[in-house]
């Protein structure tokens, strides 16, 4: 199984709070090969960011990975020492956040911040680090890059800051890039620039990418495969074409039907999923989606479904009793007719 760069297996992440532990992420699993891009989608609070922060081990004082493993290059990131993790963070794995201002330090110049990481991880001297930083800024399409090195973050526009963040994140040639809503705060024309840039860099360096977004348009444009999360769990996983053409989970179907596209006619009604996401403190028993699912049966109310494989390749997985029963029936039929 050496071909996978990252294997996330049944990860459970919890936070300690005054009222005991709360579980933000429950049994999240997925794999990623070098050069592959995976998208994580789902409603606000479903655990997308916590999943990525679990990989980076940036969960703060109160959060930790309680169960499961995160194999990166054969090492379990949930188990290695903090010193080892620091070596990996910003070097082999780097991350871009939604709001670049929160991760750029306002009191240091762009040049200072870029050179710090480069000198630390690439062991370059001051002059070489500076030249390399300028080269990186050029590669992400920043004009006047030498002058920008001496600017402070607030002097740059949102799109420019995000490009600086990308230049920083990619400067140590990471093998894995985690991008948490990298374009959500940007305008569509600037978003288009950033997405094109990420595609270019991906093809040049074979970096694997985890792309977190709530925008299914961005997902359709960028990723190879998708995991759909609901209330802290993966409810469906498939390659991007299968997920859009043949979604199996009622939540995924609702999600795809509820986006007005350019091709949606005005007379059409959007599919809407009734109700709202349950809170972590108040998870329903059985299938977590049953409170909003129009197909829910008695079994869905009682028993929690597992994430099961739907096809022989094991690429399409779903957590739903109905899909599981349907798959079972069609497999039975095949055996009868073949």
């Amino acid at each position: 199984m050496e071909e996978y760069l990252l294997k996330v297996d049944k990860v459970q992440t919890v936070f300690k709070t005054g009222k005991g532990e709360i579980t933000s992420v429950e049994e999240v699993s997925f794999q990623l090969k070098p050069g592959q891009t995976i998208g994580i989608v789902g409603e606000s609070g479903c655990g997308k960011s916590v999943t990525s922060l679990s990989i980076m081990r940036l969960l703060g004082k109160h959060g930790y990975v309680k169960n499961g493993s995160i194999l990166f290059n054969g090492k379990d990131l949930a188990k290695i020492s903090e010193a080892e993790m620091r070596e990996i963070r910003g070097n082999e794995i780097s991350m871009i956040f939604q709001e670049p201002m929160t991760s750029l330090n306002p009191v240091f110049t762009i040049g200072n911040q870029m050179m710090e990481g480069i000198r630390l991880h690439m062991k370059l001297g001051k002059k070489e680090a500076r030249n390399y930083a300028i080269e990186m800024l050029n590669s992400v399409g920043i004009p006047r890059s030498e002058a920008i090195m001496n600017e402070f973050p607030h002097a740059l526009s949102g799109g420019m800051r995000q490009r600086v963040m990308i230049a920083m994140a990619l400067s140590c040639r990471p093998r894995l890039l985690i991008a948490d809503e990298p374009t959500t705060a940007l305008d569509v024309t600037i978003q288009a620039q950033i997405l094109e840039l990420m595609k270019k860099l991906r093809s040049q360096s074979n970096t694997a990418i985890i792309l977190i977004t709530h925008d299914l348009g961005v997902v359709a444009e960028m990723v190879d495969k998708i995991i759909v999360m609901y209330a802290g769990q993966v409810v469906e996983e498939a390659d991007v074409f299968t997920l859009f053409d043949n979604p199996k989970h009622p939540y995924t179907k609702g999600l795809i039907g509820s986006i007005p596209h350019i091709e949606t006619h005005q007379e059409d009604r959007l599919i809407s999923i009734p109700g709202a996401v349950p809170s972590l403190q108040n998870m329903p028993t059985g299938c977590r989606f049953h409170t909003r699912c129009e197909f829910a049966t008695e079994r869905c109310l009682q028993e929690q479904p597992n994430l099961i494989q739907l096809d022989e390749t094991g690429e399409h997985k779903v957590r739903c009793w109905l899909a599981e029963e349907e798959a079972y029936v069609s497999r039975e039929n095949k055996e009868v007719f073949v």
């Binding site: 569509v188 978003q191 288009a192 299914l216 348009g217 961005v218 359709a220 074409f241 350019i262 091709e263």
Partner: peptide
């Protein structure tokens, strides 16, 4: 044109 279309095809 910049608007990403939710259709991978």
């Amino acid at each position: 044109n910049a608007y990403p279309v939710p259709n991978p095809h």
